[in-house]
């Protein structure tokens, strides 16, 4: 029997609900504001940008800033470079890390633990420490000013392998794999037809982190890419930072435009993560 709420309780419930939403709204504003501010600055004239208090509404400099951006940078070429590298990095990382994670999660082989622990240990080594050997290798391969160094060395990375291994170990039942084998499906086909569909939430997490990581990769792109047409967005925009003369209008316009693909990817993948996680919880995936 459901107890009826008193008028006082209902009011309290409503007030606490409203308060809860107000707090959530306030917190979300803290996260949304920097993005909004970038878009506001992208539309303001350079001489009208830095004010106290900061400007909160859009200005009239959108066309000038856009023209200035295109005058100083091959911006859309830079966007293509960033998008191409990020897509290739995401695609290859997902494929290779899932393969490696699946092998560690479901196969028994000699040295399995040692190999897995060895991969994990590499997570503790700061990336910057390896930059000089990495750079030397890329020079040796003659890969300077190409896209290869920006996705091939990280295709099978420790974080991705660990993530996929942990997820697949708990989410793909051995019985299901055995059933597939009894049906005569080969190991590679099992990976493609059984493992990949079941790993969608982890793939979404890995995909989104790889895409954003690749898109924001500044130092790697800085040392590898050697001319304006080859630059990715972060390197291209940073090249606009002068000393005597800084065109903040162009920089803000470029930053605002470069946020768009990231937002789209985030919205797409976050939907995937949430829907698949929920699906998993309702179906009660077997272990």
């Amino acid at each position: 029997m459901v107890k009826k709420r008193s008028a006082g309780h209902t009011l309290l419930w409503k007030v606490s609900g409203t308060l809860k939403y107000l707090v959530l709204f306030g917190v979300s504003l803290i996260f949304i504001y920097p993005f909004y501010y970038v878009f506001v600055l992208a539309t303001r004239e350079r001489g009208n940008m830095f004010k106290v208090p900061p400007p909160f509404w859009f200005g009239h400099g959108i066309v000038d800033n856009y023209n200035s951006l295109l005058k100083n940078l091959p911006f859309w070429r830079n966007m293509l470079n960033s998008t191409g590298i990020a897509v290739l990095a995401t695609f290859t990382t997902v494929i290779f890390c899932t393969m490696a994670g699946f092998a560690f999660a479901k196969y028994k082989f000699k040295g399995e633990n040692f190999l897995f622990n060895f991969i994990l240990v590499t997570l503790a080594i700061p990336q910057l420490l390896g930059i000089i050997p990495f750079f030397k290798m890329m020079v040796w391969f003659n890969w300077l000013n190409t896209w290869f160094p920006l996705f091939i060395p990280t295709m099978a990375n420790a974080f991705g392998i660990f993530l996929m291994r942990q997820y697949l170990a708990g989410s793909v039942p051995l019985d299901l794999l055995d059933a597939a084998r009894i049906d005569g499906i080969g190991e590679f086909k099992i990976l493609v037809k059984v493992v990949f569909p079941l790993a969608k939430p982890a793939i979404a997490v890995l995909g989104i982190s790889t895409f954003i990581g690749s898109w924001n990769n500044f130092f790697g792109a800085l040392v590898i890419l050697r001319d304006k047409r080859a630059y990715t967005i972060p390197v291209a925009l940073s090249s606009l930072l002068g000393i005597h003369n800084i065109d903040f209008g162009a920089i803000m316009m470029g930053t605002a435009l470069s946020l768009v693909p990231l937002l789209v990817i985030f919205l797409f993948f976050s939907k995937q993560i949430i829907s698949n996680l929920l699906a998993g919880s309702l179906k009660g995936v077997a272990r």
């Binding site: 130092f219 800085l222 050697r226 001319d227 304006k228 390197v235 940073s238 090249s239 930072l241 000393i243």
Partner: peptide, 10 residues
Amino acid sequence: VTNDFAAHHD
């Protein structure tokens, strides 16, 4: 080949 101040030196 132009980069920003700190990036160039890095």
